[in-house]
């Protein structure tokens, strides 16, 4: 097993490098100018100086290698320094990935915005999974019952209606008409007592519900299909015929096997948390990572776009490996060759 993980991680390195090259190259094609958003009164010579200082005019290869060095060497070193409170030699003149818009390190802004994304999107993902698994299992166990029919119909609706429409409808109903929940997420809110906790929960309600609906629909469809397949297997008949109670047959025999593919799907969906947050964060003005990427794209802030997009890609590759490893741990029939 350890060997397998090491081999997968090693083979992931070339993949990640190729992806980093593709993303860097595509984004670099963009005609964006780091001085584009500055006041028009700045003379061209100064603009040229700024461009040189940010390295915007370097040849493509130089920019790419510089970025690789900044991302894979400087940033991890910085991270270690800040976490363990140590200083490596040369930490003063280490160059980090600098945003063209804020002129500050991109990673610092990501770290600042990460909690909002994790709170809103992460909690809805956990909630969605917690609801979806029992619903899916029960729906499959009572196939063709009223619960199953209504359930699958609702799952299909939740799966088909895009989050940007549910989000806007929620705002119309709950913010504009009923005035129950605020439509804009206030990030400056610090939870200190019961009152602020209540405010925090209220402002989280709509984005979390919208995303939870979508996750639940997707996951329960999958759980239902997987459980149905297992309930028809011979070993279930064997379990019933040797006189086990229905509870044991379903909970210990069927569900445990049905959840193997579901667990891998949950792992595969985690990188999607960040990408899926793009739209929801935009609707409810949550200043998380997704909104940061949109701002960077609209403002032509190339280093930010490259870095954030690449982090998404690394997450996808990593969680693919996690899913495969989990599959092997959970399902003894899978052998690593």
């Amino acid at each position: 097993m350890g060997k397998y993980i090491v081999r997968r991680l090693l083979t992931a390195i070339p993949t990640i490098l190729v992806i980093s090259f593709i993303i860097f190259a595509i984004v670099d094609l963009s005609p964006s100018d780091p001085t584009g958003n500055l006041p028009l009164t700045i003379p061209p010579e100064v603009r040229q100086k700024i461009r040189e200082a940010l390295g915007a005019d370097d040849p493509f290869v130089v920019k790419y290698v510089k970025w690789l060095q900044q991302f894979f060497i400087s940033e991890p070193l910085n991270f270690i320094e800040s976490v363990f409170d140590v200083t490596f030699p040369g930490s003063e003149d280490r160059v980090r990935v600098i945003s063209w818009a804020t002129r500050g390190p991109v990673i610092d802004i990501i770290v600042e915005r990460l909690p909002q994304t994790l709170w809103v999107v992460g909690s809805s993902y956990v909630l969605g999974v917690l609801i979806a698994v029992p619903v899916g299992v029960f729906s499959a166990y009572k196939q063709y019952s009223i619960f199953d029919q209504v359930g699958t119909f609702l799952m299909m609706i939740g799966f088909s209606v895009p989050t940007f429409f549910t989000g806007l409808m929620f705002i119309i109903i709950y913010s504009v008409n009923l005035k129950w929940f605020p439509s804009v997420y206030d990030t400056t809110l610090v939870v200190t007592d019961m009152e602020t906790l209540q405010l925090q929960l209220r402002q989280m309600f709509m984005p979390v519900t919208v995303l939870t609906l979508y996750t639940t629909a997707q996951m329960s469809r999958y759980t239902r299909a997987s459980t149905l397949e297992n309930l028809q297997q011979d070993y279930i008949r064997t379990a019933r015929s040797k006189g086990l109670t229905e509870r044991v047959v379903v909970m210990t025999h069927a569900v445990r096997n049905s959840l193997i593919p579901v667990v891998t799907l949950i792992a595969l969906g985690i990188p999607g948390i960040f990408a899926g947050a793009l739209i929801t964060e935009q609707i409810f003005r949550v200043n998380g990572i997704g909104q940061y990427l949109i701002i960077a794209i609209q403002g032509g802030d190339l280093p930010t776009v490259q870095t954030v997009t690449f982090i998404f890609a690394v997450l996808v590759v990593l969680f693919n490996i996690v899913a495969d490893v989990l599959y092997g741990i959970l399902d003894p029939r899978v052998t690593y060759s």
């Binding site: 993949t15 593709i22 993303i23 595509i26 990408a275 793009l278 990427l293 997009t309 693919n320």
Partner: peptide, 19 residues
Amino acid sequence: TDIFIALPQLPLLLVLMML
């Protein structure tokens, strides 16, 4: 195919549209 699967779809779509 694997590399294309690992590309983050929505961000890349946005970038390509902008470009």
